[in-house]
Design a protein around this nucleic acid. Structure first.
Lengths: 207, 207, 207, 207
DNA sequence: TATGAATGAGGTTTCATTCAT
DNA sequence: AATGAATGAAACCTCATTCAT
């Protein structure tokens, strides 16, 4: 969004009322999500935490659910940007795959809110799988698939590998390993989990 | 409208011999929990499903949360009874431990509602860890601890084993393995998971 | 001293047995409808006027619209009962038709709220034409049709009369004549209007 | 749906002589009034349809109601100009009266929005009868009165005619005949209705 | 002239809970 | 033991209107 770019150059020191309510609202939800689940957070609470008028939630995000999607979309964009950047220097399908997987654990570990939204909150919503946000979420899935295909082409992975199936196993594995840490509020060690998952998967993937 | 259904029960002579409303209410909640989470179930819904008056929930269980605890307590008693019975003929700490662990997976797999309450719903409540129900839940934890101590005494397990820590690892492992199956509604194979967990744990426990 | 008559109508704080809130709510809406249109009446206003809790509107009538339908249904039943009773002694299709038409004007004139609901408010609602209340409203239409058919059989009306069309003309005429009086709050003289409409219609109907 | 309204004002070429926002706002309301009643139209909707900022409604028209009055005033001026023009060549009180009456039906039939505002929307507002717009609306009433007086003077109408009363009867008749067509969205045939009304009125007026 | 941001008051509706009998 | 009636608090959401620029 060009809005972001503008804001960087805006005069921020002089006036305190500069951060627009939209940002404050999104930020407020993020903070509140650390403590309770989305359904038990009220719009009044969000507005109060954001020092914004309740109606602005509806102006900016359509409705309460839209706000959650908005927050998720932000997270997804950020993390996918970071992955793409980090992936730049990495050569070889295995290495790239490990980087991607590691990134998932790393992100989920460092940003529990992001993790909770993706793995728990959003699944309740009917419309989610038709939403724009879901399309964003699929980018990640696409990255994994692409790397798998690369690996098959380069000979790093089995020629007869069913890449889509393999992708599902990998994504399922990530969820599998992340969830307990998320719910019971324990560490989700990225290196350990990434190694574990890679080891499991590679023994079935590599030729 | 289900008014008709109610009337059937209403017009009965003041003789008490039918299944009391208390049981019907608990049963109703169990059924409803199969489909939605506790917070989205309303007391009106419960009462209707139980063909009971809403106020009876409060007479019998104090409040909505009390009802959940009541249901959980029932489940816990049942399953702990079953474990104790099943454990009768089993000799040896390892065997007994495996039985206990297997039972957990078996119960969670067969009774998702039980699993959900224990692993998800109940954790939201502040008072839970001071409740009677929590004491019941600790019995299970106690069983594991006792078996571990037995094993240490009998020499089946390492003499220097920190039994409390080991218990936590085991209970954590059970949760760990159960949760994804629960959330994503997949199978929780008791034998496979019990074997897996025992193998992992034993290599660290046995002398 | 015996309790004075006033107590019957006044609110009786110590003991209940008041007319139940459901009735008070319906009555309150009726009164409010005399002064403003349905959309500008708030549920809070209704509840206050009924000295009842706002939530009871939803318990008893489902929603605000349901309340309007409830009130209308009451009116329809009352007035149709009265027509049927009044029609008992009347012989001859013409006479019966006049009685029915006269009744419409008489009812609309005496009960502006009834008239407003039927002729104005209810038409905005999408579901109306599929509602039970609409079926009730059709009874009236059915009465007119039946009388027209009687008249055709008895020879009072033309043998080749399209009774359905004639019914529509008559009902349209009633609305046509009623509306201005309704909107501009003028008299809707039943005799005069009934005569006028009958004369217009009969000259096209009689053989 | 109001989407249509938006499209009407689609991206216009960057001509500088654009109709200013004030006109676009008034035009937008006119279009929206064809589909829903004034109360269900939101200022946001109006602004969007007009591709104007919501606040401009307040700059140009004071408030939402002021906008309605503005639109009505426009209509009234247009139609009264037309009447005056059409009346130029017409001789004789009867003929002039018929022309005026005919014009009312003609205008109402061709411009439902105009009709709705005059006959329905505006009557809810308390202040209306003290507003400038109401004074405009009285011009029409004045025209009728003037023609009646002319007729009395010229001997075309009874010498003892109560012209004010007669005016009311005529205006009432126009409303009487217009409303049903308006509400039930049927034709309002100007010739037929004008003839009918004139005939009714004249037989009581002519000496 | 025009705008984006913000707001307060109020809308309908839901729900856990209590009370009188 | 059981019920129907009632309730208060809060939920999500809408809208006309104002303000700073």
């Amino acid at each position: 969004m060009p809005k972001n770019a503008q804001d960087i150059f805006k005069k921020q020191p002089p006036k305190r009322s500069n951060p627009p309510a939209k940002k404050r609202i999104a930020a407020a939800l993020k903070i509140l999500l650390e403590e309770k689940d989305f359904n038990s957070i009220t719009t009044a609470e969000i507005a109060k935490a954001a020092r914004a008028n309740e109606a602005l939630i509806y102006r900016y995000f359509g409705d309460k659910r839209g706000l959650l999607h908005g927050v998720l979309a932000e997270y997804l964009e950020e993390s996918q940007d970071r992955i793409r950047k980090d992936l730049k220097g990495v050569k070889g399908a295995k290495n790239r795959l490990r980087k991607i997987v590691w990134h998932a654990f790393y992100t989920y570990n460092g940003n529990r809110t992001h993790a909770k939204i993706v793995l728990i909150e959003v699944r309740n919503f009917n419309g989610y799988y038709k939403s724009d946000t879901y399309q964003l979420a699929r980018n990640y899935s696409k990255m994994v698939l692409d790397v798998l295909r690369e690996g098959v082409e380069s000979g790093e992975f089995r020629q007869d590998l069913d890449t889509k199936l393999a992708r599902n196993v990998i994504l399922g594995g990530i969820e599998h390993l992340t969830l307990p840490g998320l719910i019971f509020d324990r560490e989700i060690p990225p290196d350990e989990y990434a190694d574990f998952l890679m080891e499991m998967v590679l023994s079935g993937i590599t030729p």
